[in-house]
Design a protein around this nucleic acid. Sequence first.
DNA 1: TATATTTGTATCGCGAACGATATAAATAAT
DNA 2: ATTATTTATATCGTTCGCGATACAAATATA
Lengths: 150, 150
Amino acid sequence: MDGRFKLDNQLCFRLYTASRLITQAYHPLLSEHGLTYPQYLVLMVLWEKDAQPVNDIAKRLMLETNTVTPLLKRMEAEGILTRVKGEKDARQMIVRLTRKGHGLQTKLMNVPEAVGSAVLCESITPETVPGLFGMLDDIINQLNDKHKTN
Amino acid sequence: MDGRFKLDNQLCFRLYTASRLITQAYHPLLSEHGLTYPQYLVLMVLWEKDAQPVNDIAKRLMLETNTVTPLLKRMEAEGILTRVKGEKDARQMIVRLTRKGHGLQTKLMNVPEAVGSAVLCESITPETVPGLFGMLDDIINQLNDKHKTN
DNA sequence: TATATTTGTATCGCGAACGATATAAATAAT
DNA sequence: ATTATTTATATCGTTCGCGATACAAATATA
């Protein structure tokens, strides 16, 4: 065979593995506060802008609502946020952080730094990260556009 | 807040999203043959070297056996591979491709090329890919070493 | 040889992801 | 105003991913 099926030639496998391993690096820091990594992503979205409908959160995270809805329900059960029907549009569910949800921001203050330093290495430095971000953003936009077209 | 929690500054979120979107790009090509992306990864491992114990497959994919075992059982149920107790070590389960499993390689011949071209864009070209691979490999090795140390 | 430890795999439970589908509310078309 | 379509969210079923745990076979130790 000509190497097209060699694992070592696969971009997706690298992304998949790197994603899993960084998520694992977050795990001890987040589980300490009863959070998962996707829940932490939801928090970052709501810390940026509170009181958003489910759809806006899903779009920001590029996830489907059938992934986000159960995620939000679990966070609601933990007392991190509330979900209330929209007033001007009764189909929407507006998601708002509770005091506990806001408070987590302070408690997690050191997490980005901790994970960031764990990832630093030969080729991942403050100088090279922007280039990496650019490539990943290109991949994401490329595939996202293609998905919307089809 | 100082931007440390901004989604746009997060490496992990980009890896997580890029990984999901590429996996989605594989989906129509693989589901046509009754496969998922992780199952495709297992196939690539076994096409490279048939007749491996569960542990070797898991290590190659950097997954735990409690992820791989059910995955292999589903593939066995589909007639893609067989699992038989090792002869020299009765604890091992040796995984072997069936004729169907081997045959899938021919049927999926065009998949790498199709996904590859879907990802090609401004900053992802045959010239830039090696650099991206290097950075991702560094991240993976860095986190993998750290994990084994702790 | 008997006992302890390590190793390879599997089971269990939970939280994602996501395709397919359903439902109600809002909007557009007739 | 009725009917049709779109939109926002939710439900269901299947497959991962993984921490915790179990268990038997192999190896090391006493």
